[in-house]
Design a protein around this nucleic acid. Sequence first.
DNA 1: CTCCGCATGTAAGCTGTTACATGATTCA
DNA 2: TGAATCATGTAACAGCTTACATGCGGAG
Lengths: 185, 185
Amino acid sequence: MALEHALLVSLSEQAASGLDLTHRFDKSIGYFWTASHQQIYRVLGRMEGDGWVHCEVVAQQGRPDKKVYAVTEPGRLELERWLAEPTVTDPIRSELMVKIRGASYGDRAAIIEQARESLEDHRKRLSLYEFLESKDYPNPDLLEGRELDICLVLRGGVRLERFWIDWLTDYIDAHTRTTTKERRP
Amino acid sequence: MALEHALLVSLSEQAASGLDLTHRFDKSIGYFWTASHQQIYRVLGRMEGDGWVHCEVVAQQGRPDKKVYAVTEPGRLELERWLAEPTVTDPIRSELMVKIRGASYGDRAAIIEQARESLEDHRKRLSLYEFLESKDYPNPDLLEGRELDICLVLRGGVRLERFWIDWLTDYIDAHTRTTTKERRP
DNA sequence: CTCCGCATGTAAGCTGTTACATGATTCA
DNA sequence: TGAATCATGTAACAGCTTACATGCGGAG
């Protein structure tokens, strides 16, 4: 794919401008897909050319005009087609993991420090996600359909952050243990 | 970064040809970084141009010659420099998650089926990783340094697969529950 | 008066994917 | 004979990042 279909999903939920979409990608749909504003604008342009979305210029008071995009019938059909298409498992890319694997070719202490920073980052995200979960979905058992989907994706975000926190804690502990052993022979 | 540094890590462990590296990226270092052979050859060429690696043509019997690459001193320094550099948290990209979020705009049953296939895929990988873990690192508490690093990265792979398995099981269950409710009103 | 947010974009470049290509050897 | 493995690559394209650009209005 790429971004096109993520935008179609987001615009199906609610028509939006490029900047609106950028903000949405900083949260919600952004738990599992990221995009910069430049890329969003470019792709929106292409999608308009393909007739997947239609754009309306909306004047605002005290602010620049904005172009509000909505999904067209061809866009809806394209989304439907894509959703039914088989999905290949996404490749994983973690720079930190590569660094950790190569730690013995450089300054290990610096890499452990990077792991600590990453841990902090993941803890902050977890807090945010847990806050959103308790605020928006206090009774997940009662949900169905679209709301259930969105809640489950958020829960996926929570679990993924927990994975990182658990693993990074383990990593730091394992190397602290080693260091302690070396210091008390 | 990108691939350059992953190749420097892999070549630091052991000098190798393009194809050797491709095989390594299908496992071990490939748990958290993937690359196709085409890209590896191209990047190796660039790295040679930059003087980070040095290549020696090795003749073989009954097989084509191969170009064995090894890290040079400038390459080693570059790796060291990169390892000490701060790391930004890698963005996550999951096509399946986007599809799940958009499931209500298409055929939900088809998407649940894709989730089932993905679950199978992750179960297979988990089996492989667990096998490698028990084979290569039966006593993780005794490890130190480079071996410990490599073992911990593998354990990260195990945990990441478990995350996917747990979450996908939850997702499928939640929607099966919903369907059952609807069928028995 | 400076910085921040709103709102849109362009241009250059890097990274990665897909498809194609060659030629030898080994195995069923 | 056909397929797979070894071994290397080219070419075209798609996707994404980084840096730059503009202009208005509001807050401090």
